[in-house]
Amino acid sequence: MNKKYWILGLIIILTLVVVTPAIAQNNTPPTDDEVNSLAKNMYCPVCENIPLDVCGTAACAQWRQQISDMLGDGFSDQEIYDFFALQYGDRVLAQPPRTGLNWLVYIVPPAAILIFAFVVFSYMKNKQKPTTDPMVAEAVEEQKEDEDDYQSQLENELKKRL
């Protein structure tokens, strides 16, 4: 019984796989906006740092045409990204795929920020010792006394006057 359902399911899936592109081909061709929504996440290897959707070179126009054709043939967005990455390397994608060494690009910044935050907070927490030279500390404190209280004196002035 179960086997029958499996076979039936397989037939349905295969039918969909075969028929879907055919149906898609009958649809109206993709609009420029549909092409650009993919192209803006891609870069050609020649035009450095210019997204594909705004690059004016003939090569990039060909790529956009290719995207348009693939959309017309019913390929999904991911399949199109995969196709171009396979053909021209991962650099065509706007973000490195999360594999292998590329993980570093995502992990290092938050790790560095967390470590730095830990160092800063530890420093602030542990900075309880007064200076070894009390004379220096006293002199500095005295010199800066009136600067420190700008805010509170402003408040006092306002209280008195208003």
Partner: peptide
């Protein structure tokens, strides 16, 4: 640059990142 040095393949780190 790091990716190119270690894997020989360049990647793009785009605005979304």
């Amino acid at each position: 640059l790091i990716s190119e040095i270690f894997t020989g393949q360049k990647v793009t780190v785009g605005p979304v990142f």
